[in-house]
Design a protein around this nucleic acid. Sequence first.
DNA 1: TATTGTTATACTCTATAACTATA
DNA 2: TATAGTTATAGAGTATAACAATA
Lengths: 142, 142
Amino acid sequence: MNDAPFPRDASEIRMAVQRLARRLRSERAVETMSDGQLAVLAWLARDTSLTLSELADRERVSAPSMNRTVNCLEDAGYLVRTPDSDDRRRVNITLTDTGAEIIRETARRRDAWFDDILDALSDEDRETLRAAATIMRRAADQ
Amino acid sequence: MNDAPFPRDASEIRMAVQRLARRLRSERAVETMSDGQLAVLAWLARDTSLTLSELADRERVSAPSMNRTVNCLEDAGYLVRTPDSDDRRRVNITLTDTGAEIIRETARRRDAWFDDILDALSDEDRETLRAAATIMRRAADQ
DNA sequence: TATTGTTATACTCTATAACTATA
DNA sequence: TATAGTTATAGAGTATAACAATA
């Protein structure tokens, strides 16, 4: 065994998840872009066009905070604001080509380390992780 | 080889792991305590006694930043500083009983939440997670 | 009057540089 | 001279409150 305070399945699995998550996080120190900025680009890559409030909701951040992040990304040329033609209070935010490329390249780099890990696994282990991912995603949403 | 931008195994599994880890992190004993503070207590629970530099290295944070975190935790009564008797430049940092209890209680809460999740799973899914935990722990150590 | 986006301001956490006290 | 810890100061990123434009 080990000297963990609660030597049960929950502890074992929980600690393995947290440990791997920490390891994954340490692998992405390639870009100068912050997590928050990157997350915004990722949402836009996924949903094409979002308003400021929608981005703030998705990142669970205040509107002023998101406004600041969007300003930085706009200055850097990664996204553009377009006033909504129907409701002129709204501003639609979309990626530029540069922004889209950044998100693709970053995802590629972030996955590079984990790709190598997966390549070194047996087919069976890889399948186990794939199945576990589905279960974990469902669990996280509860 | 792997040119697809997003929907690949590495991305899917990585995001599931990070998402579950984020969810687990939200379960803590003291709601007002930051991740950084909690991490310091966890290191001390594991290693008994550490210096400021050792804590800064482990959390990959600057010494002044760690100093500030340690000050907060000291003010709150969760840890104590003791000058090293051999090398008087060093300061040994250890948990108080209160600090140790915080860590135990946090682990208990995280396990409790995760226990409920596990209980609701099928035997097969639970076994998948258990097997995945072993693989993830091995991966994290590489 | 309510909603969307924005500005003003303050607080937390982080870093680098400089200082102190030991070695 | 080098090292461990600390203090001073500044830069991100966050929040709440208040304001402008539109519905």
